[in-house]
Lab assay of single mutants.
Amino acid sequence: KRPMNAFMVWSRGQRRKMALENPKMHNSEISKRLGADWKLLTDAEKRPFIDEAKRLRAVHMKEYPDYK
């Protein structure tokens, strides 16, 4: 299984929150909104998620060195 990218790290928490706030919203609509919201974030706002994704990638490479 591939490590999560920055968007996936960020959206994991946001998806739960949005689903709780909008229980009747379909998952596909939540995904569209999350994508739009992510694009509106500044680089500074994205930085912690980018850093976490880099950390996850490094751990994955160490655990699965032959993964392609």
Score class of each variant (00 low, 15 high):
His60Leu: 08
Trp10Ser: 05
Asp51Asn: 11
Tyr64Asp: 15
Arg2Phe: 04
Ala6Thr: 02
Met4Pro: 13
Arg55Ser: 08
Pro48Lys: 04
Tyr67Asn: 15
Lys54Asn: 15
Glu21Asn: 12
Arg15Tyr: 12
Val59Trp: 07
Lys17Ala: 07
Lys17His: 05
Leu40Ser: 13
Trp10Ala: 07
Leu34Glu: 07
Leu41His: 01
Glu63Leu: 06
Ala6Met: 03
Lys62Phe: 06
Leu20Ile: 09
Arg55Met: 08
Asn27Pro: 15
Asp66Gln: 07
Val9Gln: 02
Leu20Phe: 05
Lys24Asn: 09
Leu56Thr: 10
Gly13Ala: 13
Glu63Met: 10
Arg2Met: 13
Lys54Arg: 11
Trp10Gly: 01
Ser28Val: 01
Arg16Tyr: 01
Lys24Ile: 12
Ala19Trp: 02
Ala53Ile: 00
Met8Tyr: 07
Ala6Arg: 00
Thr42His: 06
Asp37Ile: 12
Met8Arg: 01
Ala58Leu: 11
Ser11Leu: 04
Trp10Arg: 00
Ala6Ser: 07
Ile50Val: 10
Asp51Val: 07
Asp43Asn: 10
Arg2Lys: 12
Lys46Thr: 02
Glu29Asp: 05
Val9Asp: 05
Asp37Lys: 09
Arg2Thr: 14
Met18Gln: 00
Ser11Cys: 12
Gly13Val: 15
Arg2Ile: 14
Thr42Gln: 07
Leu56Pro: 03
Ala58Ser: 13
Ala6Asn: 05
Lys68Asp: 13
Asp37Ala: 13
Arg33Ala: 10
Ile30Thr: 05
Met25Tyr: 00
Asn27Gln: 11
Met18Phe: 09
Lys62Glu: 13
Arg16Asp: 15
Pro3Thr: 10
Met25Ile: 06
Asn27His: 08
Arg12Thr: 15
Met8His: 08
Lys24Glu: 15
Ser11Pro: 01
Arg57Ala: 14
Arg55Gly: 06
Lys1Glu: 14
Glu63Gln: 10
Glu29Thr: 05
Asn27Ile: 04
Leu20Lys: 08
Lys46Tyr: 00
Ile50Met: 08
Ala53Arg: 00
Gln14His: 09
Leu40His: 05
Arg2Ser: 14
Lys39Tyr: 06
Arg16Ala: 14
Lys62Leu: 08
Asn22Arg: 00
Gly13Met: 14
His60Phe: 02
Ile30Gln: 05
Pro3Tyr: 07
Lys1Arg: 05
Ala53His: 12
Ala19Thr: 11
Tyr67Glu: 15
Phe49Asp: 01
Met8Ser: 08
Asp66His: 08
Pro48Arg: 05
Pro3Ser: 12
Thr42Pro: 11
Met18Val: 07
Pro3Asn: 11
Asp37Thr: 12
Lys39His: 05
Ala6Gln: 02
Leu40Trp: 01
Ala58Met: 11
Lys24Phe: 06
Leu40Cys: 14
Leu40Gln: 13
Lys24Tyr: 00
Arg57Ser: 14
Leu56Lys: 05
Lys17Asp: 05
Leu40Gly: 08
Phe7Gln: 04
Lys17Pro: 02
Lys54Val: 08
Glu63Asn: 06
Pro65Ser: 11
Phe7Met: 03
Lys39Ala: 11
His60Ile: 05
Trp38Thr: 04
Asp66Pro: 09
Met4Glu: 15
Ala44Gln: 10
Ala53Val: 00
Lys39Gln: 09
Ala6Asp: 03
Val59Gly: 12
Arg2His: 15
Trp38Asp: 07
Asn22Val: 04
Pro65Arg: 09
Leu20Gly: 07
Phe49Thr: 02
Trp10Phe: 07
Leu56Gly: 06
Asp37Asn: 11
Ala44Asn: 08
Glu52Trp: 01
Arg57Asp: 14
Val59Asp: 05
Tyr67Phe: 11
Val59Tyr: 12
His60Glu: 15
Leu41Tyr: 01
Trp10Lys: 00
Ala44Ser: 13
Met4Val: 14
Lys68Gly: 11
Ala53Cys: 03
Lys17Gly: 02
Ala53Pro: 00
Lys54Tyr: 03
Met8Thr: 11
Lys54Leu: 06
Glu45Trp: 00
Lys62Asn: 09
Met61Arg: 12
Pro3Lys: 08
Asn22Lys: 00
Lys62Gln: 08
Lys54Gln: 13
Arg55Leu: 09
Arg57Lys: 13
Arg2Val: 13
Trp10Thr: 04
Leu34Asp: 04
Arg16Thr: 13
Tyr64Gln: 15
Leu41Asn: 00
